[in-house]
């Protein structure tokens, strides 16, 4: 499970996260919504310590770390319990799909080569990319790259996979396939925290939905509550502007 309490982060004198609390049960899917600039990406990056929070307490699995006084070793240990899927894929240009997925297993987790190889192939197969295992990122389409990105995060078998708008760089026709994979992961009991604008996906696959605005979580609950009966005016306003709302509301 993941539990973050009172996460604060400022860039210069701009306060981006004003004490955010978020917790996700093991095996659950959490979707974070919010307008741009609301701090949702920063929150996600704080959860795997790509950004170091200025303060707050972060618990992932069995490890709890106070951000104000964490050592580099603690941060690395904590980060190794997470996987991350980037909006722009972030595949290593100098490695094939297979090598991309395998690198964290062999070098960070120190798995034996054969075991790492088997698991990497298994994860590529799961996202339907096994036949492109030896292709370099420059030879893959956006959707294929993101599948490899997801396989790379999943192969680590992390406590939680964090996804930063995993479908927003994709052509519309490729979005469905990637969301399908995410649904599959959710059903397999992988803990996920996803920043996305795909409301239909949130409505269907999320166990909880958070709505962020101005660096704070302003609405939180199961999707049917947050998406269909939001309490706050800000959330209602946000939903009205989302083209998909008609579809989401109809579920």
């Amino acid at each position: 499970m993941v539990a973050a309490t009172n996460i604060r982060k400022s860039f210069g004198d701009r306060e981006v996260l004003r004490g955010v609390d978020i917790s996700a049960e093991k095996g659950s899917t959490t979707v974070i919504l919010g307008p741009s600039g609301s701090g949702k990406t920063t929150l996600l990056r704080c959860l795997n310590l790509l950004e170091r929070p200025d303060g707050g307490i972060l618990r992932i699995g069995e490890q709890t770390v106070d951000m104000a006084k964490a050592t580099r070793r603690e941060l690395l240990a904590l980060r190794r319990k997470t996987g991350f899927v980037f909006q722009q894929y972030g595949l290593f240009h100098n490695m094939t799909a297979l090598q991309n997925v395998r690198l964290g297993l062999t070098d960070a987790q120190r798995l034996p080569r054969a075991e790492a190889d088997a698991r990497a192939r298994e994860c590529l197969a799961q996202v339907g990319m096994l036949d492109r295992a030896d292709a370099y990122p420059s030879e893959l389409s956006g959707g294929q790259k993101q599948r490899v990105g997801i396989a790379r995060a999943a192969a680590l078998r992390p406590e939680v996979i964090l996804m930063d708008e995993p479908t927003s760089a994709l052509d519309p026709e490729l979005v469905g396939g990637v969301l399908e994979i995410l649904r599959g992961l959710a059903q397999d009991g992988v803990t996920m925290i996803i920043v996305t604008h795909e409301l239909a996906f949130a409505a269907q696959a999320a166990d909880q939905v958070l709505f962020m605005d101005g660096g704070a979580v302003v609405e939180q609950g199961p999707p049917e509550q947050v998406l269909q009966n939001p309490r706050g005016e800000r959330m209602k306003q946000f939903l009205r502007r989302m083209p998909e709302m008609g579809f989401a509301a109809g579920i």
Binding site: T82, F86, H93, L103, G104, Q109, R152
Partner: peptide
Amino acid sequence: IDQIEAGVSVGLSRMQ
């Protein structure tokens, strides 16, 4: 920077 962050995200150390 995306390449560096990706490396960090799979658990590699700076040197790795």
